[in-house]
Design a protein around this nucleic acid. Structure first.
Length: 589
RNA sequence: GGGAUCGUAGCUCAGCUGGUUAGAGCGCUGCCCUGUCAAGGCAGAGGUCGCGGGUUCGAGCCCCGUCGGUCCCGCCA
């Protein structure tokens, strides 16, 4: 079809262009037809410009655009002129194009949903027609932000002396950590590549090679269940550096985040970030990635509970557990039903119940108020700074579990009371450090690495490894932004003997460790420099910068929470011949 | 692996304790209209109530199964 090529995009024209002859190309955003005069809003990625077809100006044009409807691709030629009635809502609202000529480049069927920003359409349909969903300006904006962060990242790390090196996508399956996506090998039947969960070992090997400072914006793959902020394939900014201490990694990260927030949001980030040991984060906020934009801190009331006449408390403490507590400020107005809902929420996180007290005027009521004497009751109130109107929630249980449940309720209370909404548009950045190196897996009856098995223990805690591994801390660091784990990393083990010891501790037989990680253990024998690094969740950073809590809003073609792509229908069946070539037979499902 | 919730017109939804011909707004189609930008007026088309089975005289509604979306727990070194 004939079309005249644009001379300008749809967001550029301003009053100073009045009188100029221009050509626009784009999609019809809206048609407003008055018979003798027809308005067409033309949209491209740059904006929207109004074109006017005036039949008193060109009598034939009305017929020419008779069929033109929303989402037709058209061209319009005409002169820029000032509007009689300006539209303050769009950047080109002061001007319009008086059409001298106009033509259809490509017609469009009626779209399954309207291409507007405030769309109520369900995500299922949007993902099926993702290419139409992506026409919406609000979504396009996210991808311009994503691109901007990508460019800033490359620029920043290059200026800091980093070299970007690509690591393999077809790699070796490793037993620790997330489930791998497997790729069958045709040439080596019965054997499989794994898609990388992260380039962890490769970047460490690059340090052994002497590249000193490596970075990569890289796709990673984890075959685990999805969430609002988790996709099976996602993008990381992967960073590793040599001859450094943890301080160097934290400092570098702070400079990077400060630059990104400044350039994209013109937001001044204060550095250095607050640092909080893992234990403190759990104890005060009930999470290893707490949202510090608001308070609502927890209180540990274990010592008061120890001698409580409320046996749920005293027996919990007697068995070595704790009692954590949350003062839900101003929530005494919650109905019995609302408190029950909080109880249900607590149960999801493994709580058995949710003891509570309510302070209304001089009266204290609650689920266990009759079981404790006034002195103990007042002691609890004092410890928690309770005043009239407060609702107090209690969480007896094993320390980490109790803290986690309390933390989940802290978030829930912040949501319900509007505290969370009140901090929208603000940011809190902090480090969580001193993570436990190991945790005991009841399921596997062995120690497993909390971060990963290549994380170095804190110098002070090396001696603990052989006597009290539970309390050994790692030189690890998570960057938390608004309650999201935005980045995580560590200083790595760089000697063969410590790495061997670590594998011993994790219950690997020597032969087994050699078979799985022998290449790393070998590399550490040939002069590995001390090194460490960090990996940023690129998609999550973009989410935060775009102000969305849905990771699918910043990934062009995402999967649903069951791992399907509704648009192209993957994963899909394959031909029997393909399976034969790979030496694969499917068992009955 | 588990829990919650949703699926009715192209879209967003309503549809009572099961009861005649399943409704509304937007969109769509046609006509009218020269200053709108959520245009307006008039008229009209459009439904296998996700799918399969069951209960019942009768099912959008109840039961069982199944597919799919979303959110969460487990999981995510």
């Amino acid at each position: 079809m004939h079309f005249e090529q644009r001379t300008v995009t749809c967001g550029k024209l301003r009053p100073e262009h009045a009188g100029q002859q221009v050509v626009l190309n784009g999609w019809v955003n809206a048609r407003r037809d008055y018979g003798g005069i027809i308005f067409l809003d033309i949209r491209d990625r740059d904006g929207v410009t109004q074109a006017v077809v005036d039949t008193s100006h060109r009598a034939d044009l009305g017929e020419q655009i008779r069929e033109v409807r929303s989402e037709y691709v058209i061209w319009v030629k005409g002169a820029v002129r000032m509007r009689e009635n300006p539209n303050p809502n769009i950047s080109t609202g002061l001007i319009e194009i008086l059409a001298d000529d106009i033509g259809v480049i490509n017609p469009a069927d009626v779209t399954p949903f309207e291409i507007v920003d405030d769309l109520g359409t369900n995500e299922e349909l949007r993902l099926t027609y993702r290419y139409l969903d992506l026409r919406r300006p609000i979504l396009q904006k996210n991808f311009f932000t994503r691109n901007k962060l990508s460019q800033i990242t490359h620029r920043f790390f290059e200026e800091e002396g980093f070299v970007e090196i690509e690591t393999p996508v077809l790699t070796k399956s490793t037993p620790e950590g997330a489930r791998d996506f497997l790729v069958p090998s045709r040439i080596n039947k019965g054997r499989f590549y794994a898609l990388p969960q992260s380039p962890q070992l490769f970047k460490q090997l690059l340090m052994v090679s002497g590249f000193d400072k490596y970075m990569q914006i890289v796709k990673c793959f984890r075959d685990e269940d999805l969430r609002a902020d988790r996709q099976p394939e996602f993008t990381q900014i992967d960073v590793e550096m040599s001859f450094i201490t943890q301080e160097d990694i934290l400092g570098l990260t702070e400079r990077f985040i400060k630059k990104a927030w400044k350039e994209i949001l013109d937001y001044d980030v204060t550095v250095p970030f607050l640092r909080m040991p893992f234990k403190e984060a759990l104890e005060r906020y009930g999470s290893d990635k707490p949202d510090l934009r608001y308070g609502l801190e927890l209180t540990n009331v274990t010592e008061i509970a120890r001698s409580s006449s409320f046996t749920v408390f005293s027996e919990s403490v007697a068995s070595g557990n704790v009692v954590m507590a949350l003062n839900a400020k101003g929530c005494a107005t919650f109905s019995r039903k609302q408190i029950d809902e909080l109880g249900e929420h607590a149960k999801k996180y493994g709580a058995k119940g949710l003891p509570w007290l309510k302070v209304s005027g001089s009266e204290v009521t609650g689920s266990f108020v009759k079981l404790v004497n006034d002195a103990e009751r007042d002691e609890l109130l004092t410890a928690m700074n309770a005043v009239d109107g407060d609702l107090l929630l209690f969480f007896p249980g094993e320390w980490e579990r109790a803290c986690t449940v309390a933390g989940a309720l802290r978030t829930e209370v912040a949501k319900r009371t509007g505290v969370l909404a009140s901090v929208a548009g603000t940011y809190s950045f902090h480090w969580v450090t001193e993570f436990p190196l190991l945790e005991y897996s009841e399921e596997e009856s062995r120690w497993i690495a909390r971060h990963h098995p290549f994380t170095a223990p804190m110098i002070d805690d090396v001696a603990l490894l052989s006597v009290d591994p539970t309390h050994a801390r790692a030189i690890a660091h998570d960057l938390v932004i608004n309650g999201y784990e935005a980045a995580g990393g560590s200083v790595r083990i760089h000697t063969n003997d410590v790495q061997t010891k670590m594998f011993d501790l994790l219950g690997f037989e020597r032969e087994d460790a050699d078979a799985k990680f022998g290449f790393l253990l070998n590399a550490l024998r040939f002069g590995a420099p001390p090194h460490g690094g960090i990996a940023f969740g690129f998609d999550r950073l973009v989410m935060l910068l775009c102000g969305t809590d849905n990771i699918r809003d910043v990934i062009a073609f995402p999967k649903t929470t069951s791992g399907l792509s509704l648009m192209d229908g993957c994963p899909s069946d394959v031909d029997a011949q393909q399976l034969t070539n790979l030496g694969i037979a499917l068992s009955k499902l």
